[in-house]
Design a protein around this nucleic acid. Structure first.
Length: 236
DNA sequence: CGCGCTCTACTCCTTACCTCA
DNA sequence: TCTGAGGTAAGGAGTAGAGCG
């Protein structure tokens, strides 16, 4: 297929259409044999134009070709190759950005895992303490070691007070402490995943709750019920 | 309006040459 | 001088979109 020499285009202007197919093939072969890099000046001008527009209008292409002393097709091909180079560089950059984001999230995940481990340990200790309520009551001390204040022994014997939840025992409001903590963590994660200005691949979209990679989905908890078994059991 | 055809310009992949360490 | 790697101009296949009958 001789699509390199499209009839009716700029090449026609160059009177190449008068050549037979064989002549064109020979000419192409000679062109390849005589392939020379463009001069620094030509590259400089081409680059400066590419910076402002990566695609050329036909009129501008003809004008640029005249200015540079090149065939319009050479200018077109230079722009095509330049776009390809730009694209592969862009892909490289995007890869590096994604890699950095991934590393960031991975280390964040590790620290959250450790934090969770510590909290689980804390909960275990507290539940062990709560498993021996009489001894604590006999000593007249609360969980935190302080006196439980007024109230006669009769009162204490009449009806045992409702067992506090683990979170309350640990000094947290039912959802308050962990919930807030996790909200903060979530914010940190979302901010860590964002680059100022954003890159082409748009990492900021991962902060979007609609995204399949939203933190809720990524970390396996939903914002409506932050403290639930899903969170406690997450990736143990 | 829908369809098929042609033309043009694009992307992607490849080839062939050049340059340089 | 030789050689291999990397850069780049250009060829070729495939394709999308516009124009036309």
């Amino acid at each position: 297929m001789e699509r390199g020499c499209i009839p009716g285009t700029e090449e026609a202007i160059m009177a190449e259409d008068e050549l037979t197919q064989n002549q064109r093939k020979k000419k192409n072969y000679n062109k390849m044999k005589n392939k020379r890099r463009f001069s620094d000046e030509q590259i400089r001008l081409l680059e400066s134009i590419f910076e402002s527009e990566t695609k050329l209008e036909p009129r501008k292409k003809l004008q640029l070709a005249r200015e540079l002393g090149l065939q319009p097709r050479q200018v077109a091909i230079w722009f095509q190759n330049r776009r390809a180079r730009w694209k592969s560089k862009q892909i490289e950059q995007d890869y590096r950005a994604l890699r950095a984001n991934y590393d960031n999230l991975a280390s964040r995940f590790e620290s959250l895992k450790n934090e969770k481990q510590a909290l689980m340990l804390q909960l275990q200790n507290l539940s062990e303490l709560l498993a021996e309520p009489h001894e604590i009551n006999k000593g007249g001390k609360g969980v935190d070691g302080s006196s439980n204040g007024g109230g006669s022994e009769a009162e204490a014997e009449a009806e045992p007070p409702p067992k506090p939840s683990f979170q309350q025992a640990a000094g947290m409001e039912d959802r308050g402490f962990l919930g807030l903590q996790m909200e903060n963590d979530r914010d940190k994660i979302e901010h860590a995943g964002k680059k100022p200005g954003g890159d082409l691949m748009g990492m900021e979209e991962y902060g979007n709750d609609e995204s399949p990679a939203s933190p809720e989905k990524l970390y396996g908890f939903d914002s409506a019920g932050l403290f639930n078994s899903q969170w406690l059991n997450f990736w143990t």
